[in-house]
Design a protein around this nucleic acid. Structure first.
Length: 442
RNA sequence: GUGAGAGUAGCUCAGUCGGCUAGAGCACCAGGUUGUGGUCCUGGGGGUCGCGGGUUCGAGUCCCGUCUCCCACCCCA
């Protein structure tokens, strides 16, 4: 028999890694809920057409597709937004608005794996559909992303939310004299600027924008992209409304208290035809990694999938880059599988008569409890070693003579090594008192 | 899809010019320890040197292919 390896770009989650994954996803879920989102999910595969209809036929080469026994072309989901659109379209007239939904889908993309990108990953998605105020919804969306990242210990020194607006950029380019057909080319050009050396970028800019004065005007604006007050003086009148919208959004984020995390950045463009308004991406401050999170407004998506014209905004945050960053910032070191209690003994008859009842009573109260499986006496050291290996918080030591003489056992804090005698009944009636007891914890 | 680097124990790696039965640390298991884990000491298990082919008296070592990992492109929903 030969050993079969894991599939390229996939991960095995051994218990230690699984603890980290659960911690990340529990955090996503908690952040979603406290920001007023409710969870949904869909199937892990869909009709291939659901994806090609939205993104074009080229997308088929980048996803895992299959033909079922009835000859249907299917694909494993590479994103969940089309599923969301399908589900929402199906019940659009009965869902109360705004629709604030989140999901934690497992996704697959047939791309070559590299740092921060695998073929199978998890992605936190939130979407706000049908809100009647774009700025409030966009602000709440960005806030929710920051709320999570802040909650796991990332500070404004670690990450930055770069915000811009597709509609503003389009108005700006048209106002400067670009043709509508050139817009996509310029988007791609701007998107690449942060990734290229300045010289390479300038060469590419000359190639894509041969008109010297036009290029100069654009670059002059780009070079002042960090200050919206300067920008506002340099752009044509036709762009003022868009800039005002952006100002409102940035002011809302300030009022929400996350200004230190946020920054206007005109280079944020986000892919192609998808987005219609606000766009944002979150990066590590050193810009060493891929984007942690990306999102924005996409008011045409539901219509593109056979639904009504309705506003929508949202983001996706993958687990891969996020975990690399959290690791680098040493924010994962305390995450491990733990046990509340481990019951040990010096006499297995006593354990069976007294200890197993303790195990049952504690488990009924939702504590995690385990014990050693060797049915022998005088193995205290080995049992405590087991307790250590399982990251036990407290050992419950049952000594035959003490239980027999005065119904006491020993509670030992494994981290501090402190231990304390406890009356059996007293301990069982309020285990929390012992878990928070100062003598044991200091 | 394009290009570079890597692959030896569960993990991190050493292994000289091609030459004896392939090693270390960590981890794991057992013992030292008959009222107590982490430290320390001793012992043990664990390897088709990624896989296949070639050169050679002889290959972990050299050559070819292949797979996987990793990094940069393309792309990035």
């Amino acid at each position: 028999m030969s050993k079969i390896p894991s599939v390229k770009g996939t991960r095995d989650f051994y218990p230690d890694q699984m603890a980290v994954r659960n911690w990340i996803m529990d955090g996503w879920r908690a952040a979603s809920v406290r920001n007023g989102f409710v969870e949904y999910d869909g199937p892990i595969f869909e009709h291939l057409q659901l994806y090609t209809q939205k993104s074009g036929d080229e997308i088929a080469g980048q996803l895992f597709s299959l033909t079922d026994r009835g000859g249907r072309d299917l694909a494993i989901r590479p994103e969940i937004t089309p599923t969301l659109a399908r589900m929402v379209n199906q019940q659009i007239n009965s869902l109360p608005r705004p629709i604030k939904w989140f999901s934690l889908p497992r996704l697959c993309r047939a791309e070559r794996p590299q740092k921060g990108r695998l073929r199978e990953f998890f992605q936190w998605n939130i979407d706000i559909i049908g809100s009647n105020n774009s700025e409030y919804a966009d602000a709440d969306c960005i806030y929710t992303a920051v709320d999570y990242l802040r909650s796991v210990g990332l500070t404004p020194d670690d990450i930055i939310v770069k915000i811009s607006s597709r509609s503003m950029l389009a108005a700006l380019l048209l106002g400067l004299g670009f043709d509508r057909e050139q817009l996509d080319t310029i988007y791609v050009l701007l998107d690449k600027r942060p990734k290229l050396p300045e010289e390479t970028f300038m060469a590419l800019a000359e190639e894509k924008i041969p008109d010297n004065s036009l290029r100069k005007k654009l670059l002059d604006i780009l070079d002042n992209c960090n200050d919206i007050d300067i920008l506002v003086e340099k752009v044509p009148d036709s762009v003022q409304d868009n800039i005002e919208d952006l100002r409102v959004l940035l002011d809302l984020l300030t009022q929400l208290g996350i200004e230190p995390y946020c920054q206007f950045d005109i280079n944020i463009v986000r892919g192609l035809a998808y987005y219609t308004g606000t766009v944002f991406e979150i990066f590590d401050r050193q810009s060493q990694l891929r984007a942690i999170c990306g999102g924005g407004r996409y008011d045409n998506l539901l219509a593109g999938l056979g639904g009504p014209q309705i506003t929508a905004t949202g983001f996706g945050m993958g687990d891969v880059v996020l975990e690399i960053l959290l690791q680098e910032k040493n924010l994962l070191s305390t995450i491990k599988n733990e046990l509340d209690f481990f019951v040990v003994w010096d006499d297995y008859h006593t354990f069976e008569r007294v200890g197993l009842n303790i195990v049952n009573q504690l488990r009924l109260r939702k504590y995690s409890v385990a014990f050693d499986y060797r049915r022998t006496d005088d193995a205290l050291g080995k049992q405590l070693k087991q307790a250590s290996n399982q990251n036990t918080k407290f050992a419950i030591i049952i000594m035959k003579d003490e239980i027999k003489a005065n119904k006491t056992l020993i509670i030992k804090n494994m981290a501090t090594s402190n231990q304390k005698t406890a009356l059996l009944d007293d301990f069982l009636s309020k285990p929390d008192n012992y878990m928070s007891n100062n003598e044991l914890n200091t």
